[in-house]
Design a protein around this nucleic acid. Structure first.
Lengths: 182, 182
DNA sequence: ATTTCAGTTCACGGCGCTTTGAACAAGTTG
DNA sequence: CAACTTGTTCAAAGCGCCGTGAACTGAAAT
């Protein structure tokens, strides 16, 4: 019923590329690239994309085979994705094994992780710049113009932070609302 | 006249940290971190920051000593910065040597480079997704729902692109206008 | 023309992040 | 409760990127 036409359907050693449609690989890799660009691991994107296009819950072993990853990698990657709420772990009725499904809405992931990362960085940098400014004030060879530049730098830092917040709040939200994508 | 008080002012082996104020190092490193977060090299940020706080044109050798970089590194880094228009190369009157000065407005850099990088990526990914969708259409085991998901993915890609554009146009512009920073 | 010095290039090495796979832990089945 | 399967952890290997510094180019000075 599912398209397995004839005789031996269980080969798995050398013919996998035939039951792994090329277009699927392309999609996974494409998403992988984008996700990587945004600062995550390529395989985060690949796994999520696979689950998303397949639409059916998949076991770790299936993911492993489809994307040619190691057992350990699948375990860690899917733990990350689960933690970020972009993948759910479900137990199919009757089965004693975990399956993964793609959460349709992965924007929370981007928002949360970015906020965490940026947050930590911004706080640290802000402190460093303040320290530097305070120290500079104590020196004698420091002109007013220099202090001015330091102050402006701090101000710029705050603005980058602000712009980022804005981006996360508006743009991403727009994406979501725009068409109820995904 | 410039604060060199007395006897031997030319030591350069072990006492450099004393003529290299700590606060300056802090500032350079802080900017380096931020710049790195945005996908550039740490030293791009460090060199620019140094030139910015110093305010006077500096030779490659001076930069090299101040930031403890190699000759080659300074050459490559400053070439990048120059290409992005965030640093200018000037020849001081009477001197037969290049000096670098920080361009005050480095927003063009962020905008241009981001656009280039994102542009290249987005174009490639868009193409890959289109290819994949076309190929999928040819297969028999592909449901309409799957095609739907592929289409939505493409649409999402376009939206990310769009959001990025928007971010570059509005947020960064806001930063600039807000206070005529830097 | 030769020397010297500013500046660039590039093969190599080092470093940090990612992935691997084997050992281990947890859970399931007979 | 053994025997087996599923799932996690982590030291070590792999890999890619960045900086290094020696070799090279070019230009100015002698």
């Amino acid at each position: 019923m599912k398209g397995y036409s004839s005789s031996s359907g269980e080969r798995q050693s050398s013919l996998e590329s035939l039951q792994q449609p090329l277009w699927e690989v392309l999609v996974c890799d494409a998403v992988g690239e984008v996700i990587e660009f945004w600062g995550f691991k390529r395989n985060h994107g690949r796994v999520w994309a696979l689950l998303y296009v397949r639409q059916v819950p998949m076991t770790a072993a299936e993911i492993q085979e489809a994307l040619e990853l190691s057992k350990g990698a699948v375990s860690m990657i899917s733990r990350d994705l689960e933690q970020w709420d972009v993948v759910r772990r479900v137990r199919l009725p009757g089965e004693g094994i975990w399956h993964f499904v793609a959460e349709v809405d992965f924007l929370p992931m981007i928002r949360r992780v970015m906020r965490e990362r940026e947050g930590a960085l911004v706080a640290r940098v802000a402190k460093e710049l303040e320290d530097a400014e305070r120290m500079a004030r104590g020196h004698e060879g420091v002109t007013d113009e220099t202090l001015e530049r330091l102050a402006r730098m701090r101000s710029l830092a705050r603005m980058i932070e602000h712009a980022m917040e804005l981006f996360l709040k508006t743009s991403l939200l727009d994406i979501k609302k725009a068409d109820d994508i995904l």
